[in-house]
Simulated scan of single mutants.
Amino acid sequence: MTALHHGDPAAFAADVLDEGPPEPEHDPGVASRRPTKTSAAGALIRDSTGRMLFVVPTYKSVLDIPGGMTEDDESPKAAAAREIREELGTDLALGRLLVVDWTPRNGVWRDCHQFVFDGGVLDGAVAHDPELESVVYLTLDEARPRIYPSLHRRLVLAVAAAESGSTRYAEFGREV
């Protein structure tokens, strides 16, 4: 079963009850006419030498960080934990949020909020998902020609955020 959130289930259930009944539509159909924005979440995971963990997907020609798209009613942190469990076969204790990045529409993909959490240190990860060819540990410079430029910019921000203890906001990988 997919967790809807990342945290204490009893506290989450109490928070939902505290909100009261669902908000009614005062203008029938207004909710269905609103834009749908997607979100994705991943983790900055490094090995004990400081290299970053990248997944090698079978369905695209570039590397990515472990993570993926959120499902309906799923929080970004819960999605990152679920995707990491699926991709790497491990339950990773995700740390704090490092970056929130907005990316524009790209081909068939809607604009998206991208969340990067601190995944800590993990040595010797292997791919456990049939959608992955493998995983690789690379420095950011080594990875640069094999990742999207926006991901490179986002990861530069994530490293800076991890080192400074801050959280960064970006648009298409550029801090604003």
Rank of each mutant, 00 (worst) to 15 (best):
S61I: 05
A80H: 10
G107R: 14
H26W: 15
V100A: 08
P21F: 06
T38K: 02
E131M: 14
K60H: 12
R146D: 00
D141S: 09
E131G: 15
S164F: 03
G124H: 04
T38G: 01
A31P: 05
G42Y: 00
I45H: 05
A143I: 04
A3M: 08
A3Y: 05
E175K: 07
L94R: 13
L140I: 07
L138D: 00
D101V: 11
T2W: 02
P57Y: 00
E74Y: 05
A43H: 05
T167P: 02
E163T: 04
H128K: 15
G29R: 02
T2H: 04
D72R: 07
D101N: 15
F54H: 00
R168T: 09
A162V: 10
G42M: 12
P130K: 10
S166V: 09
E83T: 14
R82V: 13
S164D: 11
A11H: 00
L138M: 07
Q114D: 09
D8T: 01
E87A: 03
P28K: 11
E25Y: 12
P22K: 12
G89K: 09
V116S: 06
S166Q: 13
A3R: 08
P9Q: 04
V121L: 08
P28R: 14
E71C: 05
G119Y: 08
E142W: 00
D27L: 15
V100T: 14
G42I: 07
R46H: 13
K77T: 06
T70F: 07
R110C: 03
E142V: 01
L138H: 00
G95P: 09
S75K: 06
V176H: 09
H152L: 10
E23D: 13
W109F: 11
L98C: 07
L88P: 15
I45G: 05
A3L: 14
T49N: 11
E87M: 11
L98Q: 06
A81P: 09
Q114C: 12
R174E: 15
V108W: 06
L132N: 02
E71L: 15
L92C: 07
L63W: 02
V126S: 11
E142I: 02
